[in-house]
Lab assay of single mutants.
Amino acid sequence: MFKRLMMVALLVIAPLSAATAADQTNPYKLMDEAAQKTFDRLKNEQPQIRANPDYLRTIVDQELLPYVQVKYAGALVLGQYYKSATPAQREAYFAAFREYLKQAYGQALAMYHGQTYQIAPEQPLGDKTIVPIRVTIIDPNGRPPVRLDFQWRKNSQTGNWQAYDMIAEGVSMITTKQNEWGTLLRTKGIDGLTAQLKSISQQKITLEEKK
């Protein structure tokens, strides 16, 4: 169930391209415009997507990853294993993690069937560096609404905000991946996880038929 919630949630996290980005210092504006741009692209490019579902990787690479804190999220997933990894191991892992996100997020976007969304009203940021933004996803086919909290983090150097995690039903996506990959990290280390991520990233994206 959580895996499905995570995939549905990713439908609204794909941010804007650099040329049309919203105010990078306001995570609420980023979330709002990102959702609108993403849904528009999914709707307008269905012919290309249906002809070649792996085209979704391109959308992810162009529109999402430049505005997601990939390395920060990847380091959180590694936890204690990050500090013990060599620079070469980290570089290989982050490259594999990025390719994994292209496949995983692309597969999530393949679930698009006309969903709509509501974003919580903007709250004062103050001096906060981590801000959760509640998004409610509404399914046109009558499924119950899904309420999610996207975690946005302020870059201490640039002042810009980027998304790095999502919490559904009190469970963090980062925590879920830590639990899912924990045994592999304990037995085969970061190299074993890197190899698995490379394998997963090679899987073809498949479209979910409308139910």
Rank of each mutant, 00 (worst) to 15 (best):
K3D: 00
R4H: 14
M6N: 00
M7E: 00
M7Y: 07
A9M: 10
L10G: 01
V12L: 14
I13Y: 06
I13R: 01
A14E: 05
A18H: 13
A19Q: 04
T20G: 09
D23R: 08
D23P: 11
T25Y: 10
N26W: 04
P27L: 06
M31H: 06
M31E: 02
E33H: 03
A35T: 12
A35N: 11
F39A: 02
F39T: 02
D40M: 10
R41H: 05
L42E: 05
L42D: 04
K43S: 15
E45M: 09
E45N: 14
E45P: 04
Q46D: 04
Q46I: 11
P47N: 07
Q48E: 13
R50P: 08
P53Q: 12
P53I: 10
P53G: 14
L56T: 10
I59Q: 06
V60H: 05
D61I: 04
D61V: 05
D61M: 06
D61A: 10
Q62I: 09
E63Q: 06
L64S: 01
L65P: 02
P66N: 09
Y67I: 06
Y67C: 04
V68T: 07
V68A: 03
Q69V: 04
V70E: 12
K71D: 02
A73N: 02
G74Y: 01
G74Q: 01
G74A: 05
A75H: 00
A75Y: 00
G79H: 05
G79E: 01
G79P: 00
Y81N: 13
Y82F: 09
T86V: 08
T86L: 10
P87R: 07
P87T: 12
P87A: 10
P87N: 11
P87M: 08
Q89Y: 06
R90S: 05
R90P: 02
E91R: 08
E91D: 15
F94V: 09
A95K: 13
R98S: 12
R98D: 08
R98C: 11
R98E: 10
E99H: 14
Y100D: 13
Y100S: 13
Q103D: 15
Q103E: 15
A104D: 03
Y105Q: 02
G106T: 09
Q107D: 10
A108D: 01
L109N: 13
A110S: 11
M111T: 05
M111K: 11
Y112S: 00
G114T: 08
Q115L: 02
Q115H: 02
Q115W: 02
T116E: 14
Y117E: 09
Q123G: 10
L125G: 15
G126D: 13
K128M: 12
T129R: 09
T129L: 11
T129Y: 10
P132M: 10
P132E: 05
I133D: 01
T136D: 04
T136W: 11
I138N: 10
D139L: 15
P140D: 15
G142C: 03
R147A: 00
L148C: 00
F150I: 01
F150H: 02
Q151V: 00
Q151H: 03
R153Y: 01
N155G: 02
S156I: 02
S156W: 13
S156R: 04
Q157D: 02
Q157V: 05
T158A: 01
T158N: 05
T158R: 08
Q162G: 06
A163Y: 12
A163I: 15
Y164H: 07
Y164A: 07
A168P: 00
M173C: 00
I174V: 03
T176R: 03
Q178Y: 04
Q178G: 06
Q178P: 11
E180T: 03
W181N: 14
G182Y: 09
T183I: 09
T183F: 05
L184V: 03
L184K: 11
L185V: 03
R186C: 00
K188T: 09
K188D: 14
I190R: 12
D191L: 07
A195D: 10
Q196F: 04
L197P: 13
L197S: 04
K198R: 10
S199G: 13
S199E: 08
S201G: 14
Q203N: 10
Q203D: 14
Q203F: 13
K204H: 11
K210P: 14
K211M: 12
